[in-house]
Design a protein around this nucleic acid. Structure first.
Lengths: 128, 128, 128, 128
DNA sequence: GTGGTCTAGACCACA
DNA sequence: GTGGTCTAGACCACG
């Protein structure tokens, strides 16, 4: 499986798992219907506890990115729609980063270029 | 003072202090040489522990945003220059957010517009 | 057959089957004597395990909604009478929902209107 | 403390904790700002594991009923507003119960009386 | 075989 | 002293 944990990072393990799955979906590597490894399988593969993987999966479920059931385990099921609440969340997350960039003298076009590059690295063709 | 803590948020208090100071600098409200309240004053004003304010100030110092000395206390001392390391940090922070936005169906131009708006809200004139 | 399973839901499948049959009876679509599909037929139709359908049927039998025999299979056999025990069960189920609604600021008349609407959607004429 | 767990019930312990707190809020016994026992205290008091209480508290937080922070622990912080999503959730929960009642021959007015009684038991004066 | 719940006990960050 | 994260290992319900 594609997930790599950095045990020295101060980002919680479950967050790392979550992020890597989100990024795989953004990259198009995981598509609707694709199934994720079972909680126990992934846990043993990356040498973490079952509960840690379970927490990641549950938060992905809450985000509307995957569905979980006992028959098929966890699989990608993206509900593609962003509401005002989601936008506010994004804004809250991005604002301090933008502020930091401004403080360090980054200008608008440099920042936008950066975002664009990151976006395109996910396979921006989809939206070109 | 301009700092408002949301004790309900799950962003740590020291992080909230840090962010609000960063944002005040980005907005131009705080400029090089402006002095920050003393640790004890700010702590008592916003009803938090001195350690908490100290932690925020120390991290701001490490970021190169403020300087601290016994004579003048803490004051803004921005070194407006970003190196590759800083860029990598920004990228690491922004990447999962961009991925999340893509998963939820946001396209590149919507995302860029969002960033632009946030940027401009800080008083983008400086860099236009 | 009229049953649709949502494999994404976290309501167990056997519960979904049960609920949909109960609701069909409430709507009057299924009436006393009407026969239900055989366990294997329904199972294959909605692509679930036979055990799952059997569990749903058994619970419906325990509720006094259907009867099962080898000759006719499962058929609707409602005993329209509720005792104190049934009332207590209903109360236990409804209480936390009412409490939640109150916490969220719903008032009595809003709640009652909601229940009335749900009731009428089942074809309230029968009891008006 | 007021929480009583039924270890023989098939309702998960964390759900029982959640419900009892919701009901205490609905009854007005717990009001905005009132603090809940710390996770560990409540856990030891009702003889369950820390994590079980933590799960209950976290779900209450997600529901917008309590806030949690390290300074004050958990305390009531109701966000009183119900949106369409909340209504849909209530409807989904109530519908099968109403259907069951109809099947058993309950009529609309009996059902409404029942709901009214439950509502009033929470101290309906607030909304009279 | 799948996830869900629960326990016991540990360590850490925040305040 | 508070909650947050993580581990190890158990039992159960669902399918």
């Amino acid at each position: 499986m594609f997930i790599k944990i950095d045990f020295t990072s101060d980002i919680p393990i479950y967050e790392q798992i979550k992020n890597q799955i989100i990024e795989a979906v953004a990259r198009g590597e995981l598509q609707n219907g694709d199934s994720l490894p079972s909680i126990r399988d992934l846990a043993s593969e990356i040498s973490v506890n079952m509960h840690t993987v379970a927490k990641a999966y549950n938060e992905l479920k809450d985000m509307g990115l995957i569905a979980i059931n006992k028959k098929h385990g966890a699989y990608i099921a993206v509900s593609k729609s962003y509401d005002k609440e989601f936008l506010n969340e994004i804004i809250k997350e991005v604002t301090p980063i933008v502020a930091k960039a401004i403080c360090k003298g980054m200008n608008k076009y440099e920042l936008i270029r950066l975002i664009e590059t990151i976006f395109d690295d996910f396979g921006g063709k989809k939206d070109a």
